[in-house]
Design a protein around this nucleic acid. Sequence first.
DNA 1: CGCCAGGTGCGAA
DNA 2: TTCGCACCTGGC
Length: 274
Amino acid sequence: MTIKLNNYFDLDSTITCGQIFRYDIEEDNSYTVILPDRVINVKKVNDELIVESSNNDNLEEVVLEYFDLKEDYESINKEILKKDNSIKDIIEFSKGLKIINEPRFEAIISYMLSTNNSVPNIKSALDHISKRYGKKVLFRGKEYYLFPDRKDLMNASTTDLREVKCGFRDQYIYDLIHSELDVDSIENMTTKDAIDYLTSYKGIGIKVASCILLFSYKKRDVFPVDTWVKKYMKDKYNLEGINNINDYIYEKYAEYSGVVLQYIFNYNRNKEVK
DNA sequence: CGCCAGGTGCGAA
DNA sequence: TTCGCACCTGGC
């Protein structure tokens, strides 16, 4: 099917800027992405998005929601510019970058796996988990495995989790799966309450909680402070310490902090390429 | 080999 | 409250 795009959408940056782990770049420069209930292939041609899917139920709505295409980024960008005109070039460069709305449970496990880990290893663990516990899908002549539901992981032991490459995070993940955690309740919490709630689970610190809230709960007033942001703030503003960085960014960008940080990250990552 | 990767939990000061 | 250290795993 084809989706007509009304405004800027930078599909390449959105998929490859580090928000998601489980995607493939195909030879024709399209992307294959694994969603909770289907595998899709997307390609941008001019102002249209060409979408193929292993499951066509409600497809347009699913794609619009996943890539956050219903959000009015033009207004958001204007608001950001009002707050800080000095990053005009960065916004111009990154306009079209969307914050992907990731499935909640998968996002929680993904970012728990990211602690002291590398991107290829995170992807490897997610693929191993999916292959062992997720549903197999045939799509365009290839096999894919959907990420399992929480209930599918209920009978995975810590040893099993170790075998699917979770490493020392096996116990944290096991405990979380079997905990009272109510994934949907987070949606209605204030950002502060949501962070407190998530970080009460072992294996989830402030950075992981921030990623989960930004990428899976549309909370744009949170922003992951990782090694990259720390280095950037030190180099550019000679600012150190997580609390100082947090205060600085939030005072400047408030409810758009998470979006701005993604823009800056995307700019610094790709500015040489384009 | 040792070091590090999109951090976090833990015990010691 | 802050500080230093260990930590699966895999690539260099």
